[in-house]
Design a binder for these strands. Structure first.
Length: 357
DNA sequence: AAAAAGCACAACCGCGATCCT
DNA sequence: AAGGATCGCGGTTGTGCTTTT
């Protein structure tokens, strides 16, 4: 049985021979692919157009990197997967020269197992059962692990107190930081603004302190990127910061981090439990190396409102879900914020094969 | 040495989105 | 506006190589 697009033709299936590859390469490099359904005929191949397209995109394209994934690439995949879930094509866009298929295979064959070995659920990036966590804690590298996430984040307050800037910083290259200002106003698009307001009509963004702003930003990135089936519970979706539902927790000492993948594996007791009470905010160390410029007055003034929000959340209001379901927020916004800045290095924004889709 | 199991990766399939007529 | 063609994506299967028994 062939594809519906070529069911009338007699097509070859299975592995491609070097001769077939050569024909396809020669045709596309001289004529371009144009309409894929016409490629097999024009190139003299007994294949369907869909198969030709796949072969070209996944294997023959000249800009493909091939070879084993680097540690940096691995971290990028994990970090982006935390936000996007199984959106392999989107993840692959962050890895020039890599295809979605390649990323997907690497994830399934390698990363998934590593995460499980670390006691992490590869789907949610949250911790697995408590027994796994206990085992994980005794690993030699569990404490004082350097945050190796590709992201570092700083926030700063603009004149407009409602608009802290979130800056994503590539690791270990502080001389060439590409600051990515993400105005939280960007997220307050009319399409989802109503769902971010509490009963008193205040936008959550407006009364959160800047730490909470940041938490919310990534909560929203997580939500708005549309993790399938994300309901806001701690096991349901990739959640940056390990944020359980909203602002209830945003600060975590880096010493509570315990895996090589940066901010994924977090001691849950530290994350959600009493350890938070002992966290020294002056260290400014958070899951993603957050440094903040706090405004004490504003922060104090926000507490009451924040409590209201927590109250509404704890009373069963699932903000994440409501955002997911009601928002038309375009997650491509995030792409546009991240990609042109070359935050993952080696990115050529002009490369149509790398970035066009 | 041979069979079985495990693994990585290439390729296929089905479906939704988009384009075109 | 409707319907068919095409594209692009994610999940799944197939294939061949390596390791284990």
């Amino acid at each position: 049985m062939g594809h519906h697009c070529c069911s009338k033709q007699k097509v070859k299936r299975g592995l491609w021979s070097p001769e077939e590859d050569e024909k396809l390469i020669r045709h596309i490099t001289t004529h371009g692919h144009g309409c894929w359904s016409s490629v097999p005929k024009l190139a003299g191949l007994q294949r369907c157009g869909k198969s030709c397209r796949l072969r070209w995109i996944n294997y023959l394209r000249p800009d493909l990197k091939r070879g084993t994934f680097t540690e940096q690439e691995e971290r990028i995949i994990i970090d982006v997967h935390r936000i996007l879930g199984n959106r392999w094509a989107q993840i692959a866009k962050h890895l020039p020269g890599r295809t979605d298929n390649e990323v997907k295979n690497f994830w399934n064959s390698c990363i998934k197992k590593k995460l499980i070995a670390q006691g992490l659920d590869p789907n949610t990036h949250n911790l697995l059962s408590s027994s796994n966590r206990t085992a994980n804690k005794v690993l030699p590298h569990t404490h004082h692990q350097q945050n190796t996430s590709v992201f570092s984040i700083t926030t700063s307050q603009t004149n407009d107190m409602k608009t802290p800037l979130v800056t994503l910083v590539p690791p270990s290259d502080t001389n060439s930081i590409n600051h990515i200002p993400i105005s939280l106003h960007e997220y307050q698009s009319p399409s989802f603004a109503p769902t971010t307001r509490n009963q008193s009509g205040h936008s959550l963004m407006e009364f959160a302190n800047s730490t909470d702003h940041l938490s919310h930003t990534f909560l929203m990135l997580s939500r708005q990127y549309g993790t399938k089936g994300c309901t806001g519970s701690e096991t349901d979706g990739p959640m940056p910061f390990g944020t359980r539902s909203s602002m209830e927790t945003t600060t975590v000492p880096s010493s509570s981090m315990n895996n090589v993948y940066g901010f994924g594996c977090i001691d849950e007791n530290s994350m959600w439990g009493s350890d938070l009470e002992h966290f020294d905010p002056t260290r400014g160390e958070m899951v993603m190396q957050i440094q903040e410029q706090q405004h004490p007055q504003q922060e104090k003034g926000c507490e009451g409102e924040a409590d209201k929000v927590n109250e509404s959340i704890s009373s069963g209001q699932n903000m994440g879900t409501s955002l997911m379901e009601s928002s038309n927020f375009d997650f491509e916004f995030v792409e546009s914020a991240l990609l042109p800045c070359g935050m993952y290095c080696n990115v050529n924004p002009m490369d149509p094969l790398a970035w066009d889709c």
